[in-house]
Each structure stands twice: as C-alpha cells, then as structure tokens.
Amino acid sequence: MIHLKNYTDLTAQEHQDLLNIRNLTTIRNASTNIEEIDFTDHIRWIESLKTCSGKIYYAVFETNTLCGGIHLIQNNDETATWGIFFDPNTSVWVIASVTLYFIDRCFNHLGVTTLQSHIRTNNIPAIAFNRQLGFKPFCESDDFTLMQLDEMLWSAQKEKKILKNILQYATHYPINLESL
C-alpha cells in the first residue's frame, strides 16, 4: 500500500526519517541545495510551508515505511516545478507509480498546464527518466538542465506503451493521498 502524506502533517520521527533519506550523499548531490539539512532548520522550513499555498510537499510511504518525497512548487498560475527523491532501496514499482500519479494529478486536478524539472546536468539517469515521461530540455547550462512537459504532450505520452502499461497496472494498486 502506497500513501502520500503532506510534510506539514508528519510526526517528529517521520521528519527525521525524511531527513535521513534526503541527507544521503547521492540524494544531496542531485539536489539544488547540496548541503546537509539539520533537523531544526528543517522544522523551521516546515513551519513556513504551513502558510504558503503555492508549495505542496508529500512524503511517500510504502507499507508504513517512509521511502521518499515528491513536491510541486507553483511558479505562476500555469507553470510549476516538480521534483522527487527516493531511498535508493525503494522498489521501481513505487517510484514509477507515484511519479505517474503525481504528474497526472498536477495536470488534471491542480490546474498546472506546464510542468518543469530542474535537474543537475551531470545527473544523467534523472534526465533520462524525465525524457521517458515526455519532458523536453529547454535550457541547459553546465550545472542545470531545465526540462518541461505540457498538458497536451503528457496526454500523448500516456498513450505510449511504456506509460500506458504502468497506468493500467497502477489501477490495481490505488495510491492513498492523506491530505492536501
């Protein structure tokens, strides 16, 4: 069973579990902020999220174990940036189903028309992963590659064999969204 829980509703232990994953070297090095985040700073940031409507952060649980995070930041009325991270031992099935569920939700329930990814240019697997989802690069530098996916392209991408298979399979395993 997979469920998503808003960061603002996590318990202290769950925040610590989340930070333990986020502070892994491999994950930090792929993040915009590569520094380790300490617990106090993290909780201060969580407090700021409670009054910020343009940012949605969910922790991902698989059978009650916290295994990652996924987020959406509204850039303006139509464009938003998303990102994910997972414990390296997370099953590919969880990563795939959560990703597709979240992106589909962004376009179909959260009013996003263009979704962007900010990826470190040396993070080749993440760029390939985004390409597989239909994202196209629109701005590249030595440090970051910016990719984007619009609603129409997402609809077309969902009809391709790879995503269609996953979405079909995912109907047997609904994702529980605990809160907005």
Binding site: S91, T99, F129, Q132, I162, I166
Partner: peptide, 30 residues
Amino acid sequence: LDSLALVSLIADVEEKIYDTFERAIVLADE
C-alpha cells in the same frame, strides 16, 4: 531498461503469463 521501462515490462510479462498459464503472479513485490 530504466525504472519506468522495467515496470512497464513487468506489467506486460504478468499479463502474458496470466493469458498463457491462467495464473496471476506478482513480479514487483517485496
């Protein structure tokens, strides 16, 4: 295969196994 392609392949194989052997198996379990 990357993770998305692997999951897609797994879904395909499970379906084909069911069609052939009439047995439902779950490949991507714990």
